[in-house]
Design a protein around this nucleic acid. Structure first.
Length: 235
RNA sequence: UCCCGUUUAAUG
């Protein structure tokens, strides 16, 4: 079984999806991992509707699901902002025995964030134990998407005070949020803080955020200077 | 350290 599942994921990585279906159909046994792999493959190719259909088919055939299944399906709900479907998955999590792992809860938090339901998002976040940096980043990004940069920065400070170390993704969320909210000074400040206080080397994406921030603020000359002086070639 | 899962710029 493991060998067949490995073969399937090999095909999934190779891109040829019709072959994937063929392998899937020809397998003697299909377990939860088999179905999870197929669904993840559909998501990678942005075939969200089919991914959801496969999940329903999986349930119809009595296969059941694992945390991995729900993590993937919640990411589908997040991408297509399917709030009500996402809430149904939330109910499934609550009804399930055993404690949900951090990845499925992160995915749940993200689903609510992407749907703009920050009240639900924060409720799950507050109740979570064993948060990791992704959990914080996800909620931060949610605030940024909703245009609530005061809350985002507040959460960032809380994150630091609680003893978590921000990473590169944390600052991508903050910088793009500042850019959209027109918080030019704050954005510039955070970019420097990232390097000086947290020792994070800016990547191309960070520079892109900074350039975007300055561009929107009308600081075209300064933005161009950044592009000329950054240590990698522009995209 | 042998199968599957979460957060990651802008534009359109």
């Amino acid at each position: 079984q493991v060998v067949y599942n490995s073969l399937l994921s090999l095909y999934l990585d190779c891109g040829c999806f019709e072959d994937v279906i063929q392998v899937f159909d020809s397998m003697p046994h299909r377990n939860v991992v088999t179905w999870n792999s197929l669904i993840a493959g559909l998501v990678q190719r942005w075939r969200m509707f089919e991914a959801f259909e496969m999940f329903k088919k999986m349930q119809g055939e009595g296969i059941g699901f694992s945390w991995v299944t729900l993590t993937t399906i919640l990411s589908v709900c997040a991408r297509v902002t399917a709030f009500y479907s996402g809430k149904e998955v939330h109910v499934q999590i609550v009804k399930s025995s055993g404690k949900a792992d951090v990845l499925v809860l992160n995915s749940l938090v993200d689903m609510y964030a992407k749907c703009g339901a920050m009240d639900y998002c924060v409720r799950v976040f507050d109740a979570m134990h064993g948060k990791d940096v992704t959990t914080w980043n996800t909620v931060l990004r949610g605030y940024a998407i909703s245009g609530c940069m005061i809350e985002a920065i507040e959460l960032f400070n809380e994150m630091i005070d609680t003893g978590y170390s921000p990473d590169g993704v944390t600052f991508i969320a903050l910088l793009s949020g500042c850019s959209h909210a027109g918080l030019t000074t704050e954005g510039r400040y955070l970019f420097d803080k990232m390097r000086v206080d947290f020792g994070i080397t800016p990547t191309l994406v960070h520079y892109a955020c900074l350039v975007d921030l300055l561009g929107r603020a009308g600081e075209i000359k300064e933005a161009l200077e950044i592009v000329k002086n950054m240590p990698m070639k522009p995209s």
